[in-house]
Amino acid sequence: MSMALVQCKECNREISDRAATCAQCGYPRRPPPWTHLVFKIVIGLAATLFLGMVVLWMVLAWVTRKPIDIDMPDPAPSATSQLQDAPLRIG
């Protein structure tokens, strides 16, 4: 395997054909691998799908909610309420 030298498009220096960037000016010789782009797209789609499912769950929970029907017993009169209702006798 031989290593060829090519010219940097930015500074015209000779760089390796396997170099990702020019050592002199830092100009990228080739775009980043497509796997990075695919990975970002997959992560974005997964996050969007997850958030969509959460929102759908919340909407369905709101739409299908049922009112809570609790039968509360009538409160028995307490001793303090009987004292408050009694006439005040001074004497």
Rank of each mutant, 00 (worst) to 15 (best):
residue 74 D to Q: 12
residue 23 A to D: 07
residue 89 R to E: 10
residue 61 A to Y: 06
residue 47 A to Y: 00
residue 87 P to K: 06
residue 55 V to F: 07
residue 14 E to T: 01
residue 59 V to C: 11
residue 63 V to R: 14
residue 60 L to Y: 13
residue 89 R to G: 07
residue 86 A to V: 01
residue 27 Y to S: 11
residue 14 E to N: 12
residue 33 P to C: 04
residue 61 A to G: 14
residue 41 I to G: 03
residue 30 R to M: 08
residue 8 C to L: 01
residue 78 S to H: 04
residue 35 T to A: 10
residue 7 Q to Y: 05
residue 73 P to H: 05
residue 73 P to V: 04
residue 48 T to Q: 00
residue 23 A to V: 04
residue 25 C to E: 01
residue 72 M to Y: 14
residue 30 R to P: 02
residue 83 L to S: 04
residue 57 W to A: 14
residue 13 R to W: 04
residue 73 P to M: 01
residue 55 V to G: 05
residue 64 T to G: 15
residue 46 A to W: 01
residue 59 V to R: 05
residue 12 N to W: 10
residue 14 E to K: 05
residue 43 I to F: 02
residue 34 W to K: 11
residue 64 T to V: 14
residue 78 S to T: 14
residue 24 Q to G: 08
residue 75 P to S: 05
residue 39 F to G: 10
residue 60 L to W: 13
residue 50 F to M: 07
residue 84 Q to D: 09
residue 84 Q to T: 06
residue 53 M to V: 08
residue 50 F to D: 02
residue 21 T to N: 09
residue 30 R to N: 06
residue 86 A to D: 03
residue 84 Q to K: 06
residue 23 A to E: 07
residue 68 I to L: 15
residue 1 M to E: 10
residue 67 P to C: 07
residue 26 G to P: 02
residue 6 V to W: 00
residue 39 F to A: 13
residue 39 F to T: 09
residue 40 K to C: 06
residue 4 A to C: 05
residue 78 S to I: 00
residue 69 D to K: 15
residue 56 L to E: 07
residue 29 R to M: 14
residue 75 P to Q: 05
residue 28 P to D: 01
residue 13 R to Q: 15
residue 4 A to N: 09
residue 37 L to E: 12
residue 65 R to H: 15
residue 40 K to L: 13
residue 20 A to E: 09
residue 64 T to R: 15
residue 16 S to Y: 00
residue 38 V to A: 09
residue 65 R to Q: 15
residue 24 Q to D: 12
residue 73 P to I: 04
residue 34 W to N: 10
residue 77 P to E: 10
residue 22 C to W: 00
residue 66 K to M: 13
residue 51 L to A: 07
residue 9 K to R: 06
residue 27 Y to A: 14
residue 44 G to K: 01
residue 32 P to H: 01
residue 13 R to G: 04
residue 42 V to K: 01
residue 78 S to F: 03
residue 55 V to D: 03
residue 87 P to W: 01
residue 71 D to V: 14
residue 42 V to P: 01
residue 27 Y to F: 14
residue 36 H to W: 08
residue 77 P to V: 07
residue 41 I to P: 02
residue 54 V to N: 04
residue 3 M to W: 00
residue 45 L to S: 02
residue 56 L to S: 12
residue 55 V to K: 05
residue 33 P to L: 06
residue 90 I to N: 11
residue 6 V to L: 08
residue 17 D to N: 13
residue 54 V to A: 11
residue 13 R to I: 12
residue 74 D to H: 05
residue 54 V to T: 10
residue 35 T to N: 10
residue 7 Q to N: 13
residue 27 Y to K: 03
residue 39 F to N: 13
residue 8 C to H: 03
residue 54 V to C: 08
residue 19 A to S: 12
residue 18 R to Y: 04
residue 64 T to K: 15
residue 56 L to W: 12
residue 32 P to S: 04
residue 41 I to L: 09
residue 58 M to K: 08
residue 52 G to I: 02
residue 50 F to S: 08
residue 70 I to G: 06
residue 61 A to N: 12
residue 34 W to D: 12
residue 10 E to T: 04
residue 87 P to C: 03
residue 48 T to M: 08
residue 79 A to C: 05
residue 8 C to E: 03
residue 66 K to R: 15
residue 28 P to I: 02
residue 57 W to Y: 09
residue 25 C to T: 01
